[in-house]
Nucleic acid binder design. Structure first.
Lengths: 253, 253
DNA sequence: GCAAAAGTGTTCGGGCTACACCCATGA
DNA sequence: TCATGGGTGTAGCCCGAACACTTTTGC
């Protein structure tokens, strides 16, 4: 629970009043007027869930928004979102983080134009980060009333994740270090939103060299059944495993 | 040639001196301290080429950089890059434009941290935009000395284009309104960097419903040969034509 | 007729799906 | 021994690559 009290208050720093200069300080800690947000997904109980924070202030009071905040003047975008997720919502266990999109519509923020760069972050299914009180997980398929353009950003993230599950090994970022194929198929089902047959998933991911057996087994439960073999992802960094689905280079190249 | 003189001077507005406040104005026209850039590709003579502008001032004097400039305070990102390409390099005929990435490394700009959002723009092969004197097309495979992190951004754009040629209909944005299959295969070859057999390209794109015959023909040249049928892309907006290369939803869904 | 360029037919292989069948365990 | 869940074998389909062959033109 470290830091969650202070974290809550600072979670979503307000913009300066409309019309005020974006940046008044000139020292190295001046903020840049640029926002960094994160769509953090985790599979929780058969649902793809996203971490949201409930605003206590206008505008969009009581609405839910993405975690994040102002970019510091001397930090990189990815460094910033990592810092803010760690400091403000106590999320330190991202297995994957990638840039999603930058939004800059003049109308996206009622207090004047604020640019926001959104990231897509993934947390594996086996951990349960302690998050502040006003922060919680919501099923991506049943989003609550959200502020600003954040709902649209969540949809972008969902789309990106779905696409990458098809041609990369992102699965590693959703799954725990070791898992059975049927567990894995549950993660894929939740993230993709449609059924994924365990029997074929195993073969696809094995053929692509994404997963391998650990040698371990999970004993069967009370209802019987054959013990399930444990697998792990061979790489725990993003790799494109099916680069040229079509129009691939000729064999001799 | 309209506006190309003035355009040149304004092409790449300098950042304020390092250490000065990012924004000093508070009226609606204050700039935001945010840069917008574009990787504009066109197939020119069997080469994928990118539009670059040669800097006349330090830093990176004489180096080549991407066209773009400061984001106005009340314009959207995409609106801004369209405006700047039109005003500054006289490029108005983009057949496709999409956001690429945002870079914000503190060290990317010697005069202090400046965020830049890059777009990927495509110009069809049949037009030849009149560009200012210090602006010219360069083969993406033989980039000149480039300033800032712009070479890396070009590579991101190239990568994005290559990937999208495989599973979308982006080809429409590279090709003229009508074309023969062998012309089209040249565009694909240039963009992908490897050989693309016209005979199979035709079948792939026909099966996917991307292209259709116009009914017209191109007479054969002096050296003979059968006249080539003319084709067009059925859609001239980006569509994903091969969504689930794998892990596609079950038939009954 | 011959070369050149476009277009078609056909075969092959790979990858994914579906589904039947076999295996290992608990009660 | 039966139900349960895991795992394997196999057949079918679709897609794209390769390549031989046919068609239509200019000279």
């Amino acid at each position: 629970m470290r830091g969650s009290e202070a974290a809550t208050q600072a979670l979503y720093d307000e913009a300066p009043e409309a019309g005020a200069p974006v940046s008044e300080q000139t020292d190295g800690t001046a903020d840049s007027g640029h926002e960094v947000l994160a769509v953090v997904f985790q599979i929780r109980g058969d649902k793809l869930s996203v971490l949201l924070w409930q605003r206590a202030r206008r505008p969009y009071e009581e609405h839910w928004v993405l975690p994040g905040g102002r970019l510091g003047a001397v930090e990189g975008l990815d460094v910033s979102i990592r810092r803010q997720l760690a400091q403000k919502v106590d999320v330190r266990d991202l297995t994957h983080l990638e840039q999603l999109e930058t939004r800059g519509d003049p109308g996206r923020h009622p207090q004047g134009r604020i640019l926001a760069t959104a990231y897509l972050g993934l947390v594996p299914a086996d951990i349960d980060p302690v998050v502040p009180e006003d922060t919680s997980w919501h099923a991506a398929s049943e989003l609550p009333d959200m502020g600003f353009d954040h709902a649209a950003i969540v949809h972008s993230g969902r789309k990106r994740l779905r696409a990458k599950l098809s041609y990369t090994n992102v699965g590693f970022a959703l799954a725990p270090p070791e898992f059975t194929v049927s567990e894995l198929s549950r993660y894929y089902r939740a993230a993709l939103g449609h059924d994924v047959a365990a029997t074929n998933l195993r073969r696809v991911l094995l053929r692509r060299g994404q997963i391998e057996e650990t040698g371990g087994f999970v004993p069967s439960g009370r209802s019987g059944g054959r013990p399930a073999a444990l697998f792990r992802f061979r790489a725990r960094r993003l790799e494109i495993t099916d680069a040229f689905a079509v129009l691939r280079p000729p064999a001799g190249a």
